[in-house]
Design a protein around this nucleic acid. Structure first.
Length: 763
DNA sequence: GAGCACTGC
């Protein structure tokens, strides 16, 4: 264990630096944007002298002190006062007046607060006491990138304001709207606010919009920022607050026309950072050794190790457990308990990470080790972590516009991520972070921030959303980070082939309908087209299943049995049809009587995915009804049942087609000419000439996954524009298509002739 | 013959 991390550095207090910079900035940019509106709402009582956007921190505090709740008129409870005491101890509280000074004098501001500052819970309340939205019938919105956060923060703030959750304070997320006409503060996902903006371009019900966790740069937050920048001009009365963790604050400021900044320090314990003296070739091995070393030599405290994916994590857990037991036997170390943590882990196993560490022995501490993906970096916080081991990698989504493929790639993390990971060690007491790379690499090789999602994604659905938001000129849309032109072109092209956009780039009726569905445009189009094939009920099921995580479970210990279980649902014409069979079975009387959980376990299916598919399906079905799209099924008795479903799929998936290579065993994707193999998980036998696929999986080999057999005649008939051979490169695919198109044309002509004859005969 | 990191509508 010679290359134990050795170099030692103190983590900088970023907050102090940012606060100084902010003060300096304020001196230079006083921002006299006049949005003050003298406005007296009530003349009956306590708000008689209150003027919108002129409250002082002192006045607000007086209102908070009670005895009556300013928003409900009710008498405050004892619990309220207990919580109030804790709140007044938060770092943000000390800067309430400073916040109000900026907030009242400017339309857009940037607020920076580290973890533990209390920004997410307190800032919206500061706004409430200054804005009094209940008097004007407006609302304050605060967005979060994740659903659980929106829910749990709303619950907390409802308690802090001494109101019932869902009344004055509520939340709005997919599948659940917990708000009422009384709601004045609404926590919501960023995606949900974006949906609202599609129907109300001015977001007119809000007097203030707070974008929280803006540094995460989710697709939805990025679009909202561009949108709010425009809305702010049309609505000078709308206040906007961009909230972020420390880094990148200047970028937000300059994007929003040099908006003023307020920074508040967080409340975390110091974390000592250690680097390795040299580059680690095998980071997995180095990580395992570091964890064991911590266990053998460091005082009490739990360990968090960041790795990239499920397989790696399970592998590391096994090795750490084995070697940890050896340490117990040979060096009298305390017991060690290792837990994996990743998104696809069943919830009850995820919960196990909160079990207490094992008791120590022989005067040596027992220890809990959690081996996790990035889920522990942002989504899940675990108290009691004192040691973090950071190899410096994570799986990140990348998009290749040339072949229109999104894939996951193990890549170095950013400085911001590294800092976030280190911070996980200092939540309850001072901690240590072991970085398995050199300090040199940290400084010179890691980028400051991860690339925002908008630069790493297929933008088909984003472009459709923007069009629906009324933004016609996408080229000049003011993105904070403009996506690559090729990515935009690909998206526009794809939407044009789907007939969601006209040749002029305008939204078509189909496009307008498609934008209403929370789906990838291609899936939305399959769904909208399905009534024409009399099978919208079937397509609803398939589309829902395609938009949730994989329903098939394949544990390493029972691969063969899992595969056999899957074959019981198999349909010889493909994986899409197999999904349909699975869902039918899941909804059967038999499964119900068996108990759905048990039934899923017995059949190696994911209960979580299937129930979530059920909610998605119900939501999609409601949207279909709302748009008068027929809900129909051919019924099992129809001899064309499966053919109709396959045709309906082909009508939307015509851009994701592969043709078998002649003589060879592989396939070639149509138009992009990529060599691919059908993923081994398919139920499809090998002899199909033409297949549609749901997904292109880019690994050591290229696979297409979730594949169904189709007839090429359907493709050329359903999407003549896409199958215009002038746009195809020469080769096997083009030749075959040419023959098919000729055949189809002759057949159509013959049919026409026959029809004409019939007509003239009958008349 | 086997790569679904993590979110969101």
């Amino acid at each position: 264990m010679s290359d134990r991390p050795s170099k030692k550095l103190k983590m900088d207090s970023e907050a102090e630096k940012v606060a100084e910079a902010a003060e300096e900035h304020l001196k230079q940019h006083p921002h006299p944007v006049p949005t003050k509106q003298p406005y007296v709402a009530h003349d009956d009582g306590e708000f008689k002298d209150w003027i919108k956007h002129q409250t002082t921190a002192e006045q607000a505090q007086k209102l908070e002190d009670g005895p009556n709740n300013a928003f409900t008129g009710n008498k405050f409870s004892q619990k309220y006062f207990d919580i109030l005491k804790v709140r007044r101890d938060l770092p943000v509280f000390a800067q309430r007046q400073q916040f109000l000074d900026i907030f009242q004098n400017t339309q857009i501001m940037v607020f920076v607060g580290e973890t533990g500052s209390g920004k997410t819970t307190q800032i919206p309340q500061f706004v409430l006491y200054d804005d009094m939205p209940h008097l004007a019938g407006t609302q304050v919105a605060c967005t979060q990138p994740r659903r659980v956060a929106a829910m749990s923060v709303a619950k907390r703030v409802a308690d802090e304001l001494d109101v019932e959750l869902g009344e004055e304070v509520g939340y709005s997320i997919r599948f659940e709207n917990k708000t009422s006409p009384k709601t004045i503060l609404k926590y919501m996902t960023d995606g949900m606010l974006l949906r609202e903006a599609m129907d109300d371009h001015n977001l007119s019900r809000y007097s203030c919009i707070i974008l929280d966790e803006a540094h995460e740069r989710t697709l939805a937050t990025d679009i909202l920022m561009g949108l709010l920048k425009q809305v702010s001009i049309r609505r000078p009365d709308l206040k906007i607050i961009i909230m972020s963790a420390t880094l990148d604050a200047e970028k937000f400021q300059s994007y929003f026309n040099d908006a003023p900044l307020l920074a508040v320090p967080g409340r975390t314990h110091p974390v000592e950072i250690y680097y390795t003296p040299e580059y680690q070739r095998d980071y997995l091995d180095a990580a395992i050794r570091t964890v064991l070393q911590i266990h053998a030599t460091e005082p009490e405290g739990d360990v968090l190790l960041f790795l990239t994916g499920e397989e790696e994590i399970e592998d590391a857990c096994r090795k750490i457990s084995l070697e940890g037991d050896e340490l117990v036997r040979e060096q009298n170390c305390g017991p060690i308990k290792v837990y994996p943590l990743y998104g696809s882990l069943p919830p009850n196993q995820q919960q196990r990470i909160f079990e207490p560490a094992p008791e120590g022995a022989n005067g040596k501490p027992g220890r809990k080790v959690i081996v996790s993906t990035n889920i522990a970096e942002t989504s899940l916080t675990i108290d009691g972590i004192v040691y973090v081991v950071d190899p410096g990698f994570s799986k990140q989504k990348v998009y290749n516009p040339r072949i229109r493929v999104e894939s996951l790639l193990v890549s170095p993390i950013s400085k911001a991520s590294a800092q976030q990971r280190a911070g996980r060690a200092g939540r309850t007491r001072p901690g240590k972070c072991f970085r398995l790379y050199t300090e040199e690499a940290f400084k010179k090789e890691l980028i400051e921030q991860s690339y925002p999602e908008i630069l790493r994604s297929n933008l088909a659905s984003t472009v459709l959303e923007l069009k629906k938001l009324g933004i016609d000129d996408l080229v000049h849309f003011d993105f904070m980070d403009p996506p690559a032109p090729e990515t935009m072109m690909r998206a526009l092209e794809e939407l044009n082939y789907l007939q969601c956009l006209s040749d002029e780039g305008d939204l078509t009726a189909l496009g307008r309908t498609a934008s209403q569905f929370p789906l990838d445009p291609m899936l939305a189009c399959v769904l909208i087209g399905s009534p024409a094939f009399q099978c919208s009920e079937e397509i609803l099921t398939i589309v829902a299943l395609l938009s949730v995580p994989n329903v098939f479970v394949r544990p390493a210990s029972a691969r063969k049995r899992a595969d056999e279980a899957k074959m019981a649902f198999a349909h010889s014409d493909g994986d899409h049809l197999t999904l349909l069979n699975v869902f039918e079975a899941f909804n059967s009387e038999e499964a119900m009587q068996h108990g759905l959980h048990q039934w899923c376990r017995d059949n190696f299916l994911s209960y979580r995915s299937l129930t979530s598919a059920r909610s998605v399906r119900a939501q999609l079905r409601r949207i279909m009804e709302k748009h008068d799209l027929d809900l129909v099924s051919p019924g099992y008795d129809d001899p064309d049942y499966w053919t109709l479903v396959r045709k309906a799929l082909a009508a939307g998936f015509f851009m994701q087609v592969a043709k078998k290579k002649s003589g060879n065993k592989g396939y070639l994707t149509v138009k992009d000419n990529q060599d691919v193999l059908i993923h081994p998980s398919t139920v499809l036998a090998a002899e199909n000439e033409w297949v549609i696929y749901n997904e292109f999986v880019l690994t050591s080999t290229n696979y297409i996954r979730t594949v169904t057999n189709v007839k090429p005649d359907w493709l050329v008939e359903l999407a003549p524009k896409y199958y215009n051979l002038d746009h195809f490169g020469d080769g096997d695919v083009k030749l075959s298509l040419k023959r098919i198109i000729e055949r189809v044309e002759t057949m159509n002509k013959q049919k026409e002739k026959k029809d004409k004859k019939k007509k003239s005969k009958s008349s």
